[in-house]
């Protein structure tokens, strides 16, 4: 999540100080990504250092508003115009977990899939309940954020359905692949086939 670009977009509306920026950010995104005020000020300092925003004179109440510079405006335009690169997203723990569940002896993979699907479905129901109420035009930005979560949860559930269908056709990995334990030392005779290749 780019807080940097989020703050630039908000400052494009007009000068704001830290607490205003935090409130405006959370309002636009329905509180889906809470910001702490420290993150806001750290980001403002970096934006200032890079010449993308400029600190204005402190108000009587001691609040220092910031305004966007021409450089900041150019950076913001570039951000809106550039597609998000999904390749740099964090590792997908669920995909890794399922891949490992399949190759780890003693794990009921179908139960893992079903448990995840139930949890994802409940999350999806929760998002849908949030959408359920009155539809006011002012809520559109937040509804779009909510829809993003809805569609992502749906994609995950579809993928889990697909995994389950694949599992039906899958032959479990033979139990000889079970790792050796202290009271059951691995026997070379048992764990290697005739060609001597470990299974």
């Amino acid at each position: 999540m780019s807080i940097r670009h989020g703050l630039l977009a908000l400052l494009e509306r007009g000068p704001m100080y830290g607490y205003q920026l935090r409130a405006a950010f959370e309002e636009s995104t329905g509180g889906a990504w809470p910001l702490n005020i420290g993150q806001v000020y750290t980001t403002l300092n970096r934006l200032d250092r890079d010449g993308l925003v400029r600190a204005l004179a402190e108000s009587e109440a001691g609040q220092r508003p910031y305004e966007i510079t021409d450089g900041g405006r150019a950076e913001l335009t570039l951000w809106f115009a550039t597609p998000i690169d999904r390749a740099d997203r964090p590792r997908d723990e669920l995909a890794i977990k399922l891949a490992l569940a399949l190759t780890t002896p003693g794990v009921d993979v179908r139960a893992v899939v079903q448990t995840q699907r139930t949890a994802s479905m409940r999350m999806l129901q929760e998002y849908t309940r949030l959408k359920g109420g009155e539809q006011r035009p002012a809520d559109l930005p937040w509804r779009l954020v909510l829809d993003a979560m809805v569609f992502r949860a749906e994609a995950e559930i579809r993928w889990l359905d697909h995994c389950e269908a694949s599992l039906v056709r899958h032959t479990p990995i033979p139990s000889q692949a079970r790792p050796a334990t202290a009271d059951e030392p691995a026997s070379h005779d048992d764990s290697r086939d005739e060609s001597g290749v470990r299974r």
Binding site: R117, T118, L124, V150, F151
Partner: peptide, 30 residues
């Protein structure tokens, strides 16, 4: 799933058998 999420309860039907999601989640040992 996006449509099913409007329901109070979502049931999965697999090979003619119902799995109810309203029940407790499986325990890790399951």
């Amino acid at each position: 799933a996006r449509h099913a999420a409007w329901a109070d309860r979502v049931l999965f039907l697999r090979d003619g058998v119902l799995v109810d999601t309203a029940g407790p989640l499986a325990r890790p040992e399951d």
